[in-house]
């Protein structure tokens, strides 16, 4: 049985200034909405955030940016956010842009006990500057180091009381790898059921990676509503 927090505020209580956090999501899809709001409320600062994107001005990680709680951002695409642009250009915010597949693999490797790996992505570009390049079978690869975090905040559709998680559709994205790469992982789930109610064959994140759970409703804001 895992800790089930009664509020998002309680869940983020151990998160301190200067910590490194992984936050799941692609755009606004699959972000742990209430845990992010609780971080804003707590006012914790100098955070290093590892996440594919940085939300939008009014939602998701954009809210942490607005309150200047982020010191460093490790992401692959941050084009949706005016405040991000302002802070990055003024030098207030440190930014490490990483190819999306490299970012996913850095997190996967971090959770899997692999300190570094070679990938072709970025060879011959400024991303590879200062990094070791090695040739395998006639092709060049760049050495990339893995990532771990003090806390990983992930968003699931369903959790059981053991901490097993199931994600919904493309809200899965970075969440499973982040769950494994956090020293402490908090799963924010739309629904928490009793252990045994989820089909073991359908679990995306096995309970071993999850330390705490929060049941929370999600607004699920849509960035680009596109219909037929």
């Amino acid at each position: 049985m895992k800790t089930i927090y009664s509020s998002a505020r309680e869940a983020v209580a151990p998160i301190e200034d200067g910590m490194t956090l992984m936050v799941g999501g692609f755009g606004l899809v699959g972000i742990p909405e209430q845990l992010i709001l609780a971080l804003v409320e707590k006012g914790v600062k100098d955070l290093t955030i590892i996440s594919n994107n940085c939300g939008i001005d009014e939602w998701g990680l954009g809210l942490l940016l607005k309150e200047k709680q982020i010191k460093k951002m490790i992401a692959s695409y941050v084009g949706e956010n005016k405040e991000f642009e302002r802070q990055a250009l003024s030098g207030e915010l440190e930014v490490e842009l990483t190819p999306q597949g490299t970012l996913a693999e850095k997190i996967r490797a971090g959770g899997a006990g692999i300190p570094a790996f070679f990938t072709p992505a970025g060879v011959g570009t400024q991303i590879a500057e200062g990094k070791e390049i090695r040739e395998f079978n006639g092709k060049e690869y760049v050495l990339e180091e893995s990532l771990t975090a003090d806390f990983s905040l992930v968003r699931a559709l369903k959790a059981d009381t053991f901490g097993n998680l199931i994600y919904n559709k493309t809200a899965m994205n970075f969440n499973p790898m982040m769950a494994a790469a956090g020293k402490v992982t908090i799963g924010e789930a739309e629904e928490i059921v009793e252990a045994g109610e989820l089909d073991p064959a359908c679990i995306h994140t096995p309970s071993i990676y999850v330390q705490g759970l929060l049941q929370a409703e999600q607004e699920k804001r849509i960035e680009r509503l596109t219909t037929r």
Binding site: Y77, G79, A88, P99, A121, T125
Partner: peptide, 13 residues
Amino acid sequence: VIKGMGGAMDLVH
């Protein structure tokens, strides 16, 4: 303004 490379650097390889 730098927006980031997203998945393009991985895709091309």
